[in-house]
Design a protein around this nucleic acid. Structure first.
Lengths: 228, 228
DNA sequence: GACTCAATTATGTCTATACATAAACGTAAT
DNA sequence: ATTACGTTTATGTATAGACATAATTGAGTC
């Protein structure tokens, strides 16, 4: 009998998906499964933890393990590093800096980053290209108090996005996808101001301080694709 | 010394985020870390596996463990069970069936589900409401060959989405978010036909056969919010 | 019936040990 | 050089045993 934890994982998943184990129902405990599969309890534990982690099972001490009632499946969304997004499609990535200047950060961005005062900031507008065709337009504010070196970043050679990924350690952030008219991004993306575009707003925070606020307007027909 | 695997996980993550361990660099091997933390290798293994799983580390046999070069962070997106989406905001969920009829599935949906022939299908249009305000408009095709019982589903009491979640075991599917004009969904969502909306297209497959194709048009100002 | 508290139990985790396996390394043969 | 092959090494995984911890159960009490 093949009794790697993966095999137990797969068999348990099969029982869940085939409704052998019904949603909400208790499944046999670890000791029983270990007996059934002829392996140690730790091996069963590993398999079930993995399934719980993926959202198929809910486990509580003493109460046992049950199949998740509404299997609110989770999709993993890889955070778009635009270069990879483009190159993974076999296209050539490039970028153009539209504008770059120091300025005080405007209120909306300050609020989004939770900044009380108006720190020195740099405002960069970038156009990302896939095979020389407009892919996305980026409007970015960088908090220079968090990454002072950014003023010296050679943005002609490396995109703001990549420079920050490589040089600014970061802990967490938020993403916000929405739909909106192209507006001022229209001329850069070769569309009409009222063309619906997918918008990504991203806030990034370092270990201590807010780092950057980005509004990314994707070219028309962009799709955010996920598998579950 | 507190040496649960979580503690080791946290300390390792701290070293990554603080650039104590630089991107791309090798980190000490499990035996060395076990010595440092005064615990068994298995405990270190658990911590590092967890970090690798989350995308912070890359591990290869014999080659050791290194910090991911471009920490392509992953966000976990909970698949929208609309009821939960609405109720989690403290609003009251309800739905209205706009239309429901048997028909042969049209080509675009057939193609999306990879169906060769045109099986019997049911077409359901549903409006989802949050506190009696339009939240999303759903246009759904169900492959009756996969879930024949659907014809008897009491959709006045339970939404198509929920009925399928509860009654159709499913294995996998795809999600596609995009931006598009409201079009024919406009009157249901109280907006203009050219208002930009967030569109979710979902394909769901059972263990054997394709189950359903859904096009969901969210009301204006919908945001898909993720944390990383 | 309502409440308290101890016994029970399923999962959570750690340990020491062992062996499996992939991949890098070094050496020897071509 | 290049190739082939055995050695070394770091991770992957299994095991038995032990104790920790949360939570339900149930017995005893008011």
């Amino acid at each position: 009998m093949a009794t790697g934890w993966q095999d137990i994982h797969d068999e348990a998943l099969r029982r869940i998906q085939s409704r052998d184990w019904l949603p909400g129902a208790l499944i046999p405990n670890e000791a029983a499964l270990a007996r059934e599969f002829g392996c140690a309890r730790a091996t069963v534990n590993r398999a079930l933890q993995s399934l719980a982690n993926a959202g198929w099972l809910e486990r509580r001490r003493r109460a046992g393990t049950r199949v998740t009632l509404s299997p609110q499946r989770r999709a993993q969304l890889a955070i778009p590093l635009i270069r990879q997004e483009i190159e993974s499609k076999g296209q050539i990535f490039s970028h153009i800096i539209i504008s770059r200047q120091n300025a005080t950060m405007p209120s909306p961005q300050r609020a989004a980053l939770g900044l009380q005062d108006a720190p020195n900031a740099q405002h960069v507008q970038t156009l990302y290209l896939a095979d020389a065709r407009a892919y996305a337009f980026e409007d970015r504010w960088i908090n220079l108090a968090a990454v002072p070196d950014f003023v010296a970043a050679p943005l002609d050679r490396i995109s703001p996005n990549e420079w920050l990924v490589q040089n600014a350690p970061f802990a967490h952030g938020t993403l916000d996808y929405s739909a909106a008219p192209a507006g001022t991004a229209a001329p850069h993306l070769n569309c009409q101001p009222d063309t619906p575009l997918m918008i990504l707003e991203r806030r990034t925070f370092g270990l201590d301080a807010p780092v950057t606020h980005v509004r990314l307007s994707y070219a028309p027909n962009f799709h955010l694709h996920l598998k579950i």
